[in-house]
Amino acid sequence: MNNNSHDHKNGDEIGCLDAIEWLYAWLDGELDEQSVSQLEQHISHCRSCFSRRQMELELTARVEKSSKSRAPGILQDRLRKLMDEF
């Protein structure tokens, strides 16, 4: 993300509300590097955001494992044949 217009003084102090927004973007692989380090800095000294990160991480991992779908082999074959026709 950050089209988020919050102005952080010194560029390195974020509060819990920003931390949560950024945490969610981070979980989805959408947070830029600089923001990641700011987020980590916040989490390193904020207990509630630390617990939230652990919980959200575990929950996200569970969701990911819950219903991973693999393209069936038959579809792969079908596409290969399709490509051969071109």
Binding site: L27, D28, G29, E30, T60, V63, E64, S66, S67, K68, S69
Partner: peptide
Amino acid sequence: TVLLINVEGLTY
């Protein structure tokens, strides 16, 4: 949306 992002690994 949750499945596409967290399970299928799509970007936003």
